[in-house]
């Protein structure tokens, strides 16, 4: 999925992960993002029975990936990881809600709009795997 790093500003620019601020940016965003997700009645039922600490670590890997950073996710991981949620009715509207919360998080952190657009584009590349299509 590293090809997405060259979206937007072309091959010559630094990777998104560096431009957005690397791991410190992930750390700054993770609590804000996860708090938004847990407070969002459209999607928080999917997180009812999860362990907070394990989930925080997962959110961190997700943000690292969404910011174009190093990760080991494969399409197959995405499918396996969300299969049980599909049975609970996970669909496009929930995927959209998560992406919306991520965008709002980055806005709150004053991340420039064009970087947010790149992050959203990376998220989009996982949509079909997450929704098992």
């Amino acid at each position: 999925m590293t090809d997405t790093q060259n979206n937007g500003e072309g091959i010559m620019s630094k990777p998104l992960y560096e431009r957005i601020g690397g791991e410190p940016a992930v750390n700054a965003a993770v609590d804000i993002f996860y708090r938004k997700v847990l407070s969002d009645d459209r999607i928080n039922r999917f997180f009812d029975n999860v362990d907070m600490e394990k989930q925080a670590a997962k959110q961190k890997s997700f943000l690292t990936m969404a910011f174009g950073g190093p990760h080991n996710y494969t399409g197959e991981d995405m499918r396996k990881g969300h299969a049980h949620l599909l049975k609970m009715g996970l669909d496009d509207s929930h995927f959209d809600a998560v992406v919306e919360n991520l965008g709002a998080t980055l806005e709150e952190l004053n991340v420039p709009q064009e970087l947010i657009t790149e992050v959203v584009a990376i998220c989009e590349t996982t949509r079909n795997d997450v929704l098992g299509r």
Partner: peptide, 18 residues
């Protein structure tokens, strides 16, 4: 404990402080 981990986080405590 599980419920409070979530609730104290939602009320503003940082996850690293729980």
């Amino acid at each position: 404990v599980n419920q409070m981990k979530k609730m104290t986080f939602l009320k503003g405590a940082a996850s690293a402080d729980i």
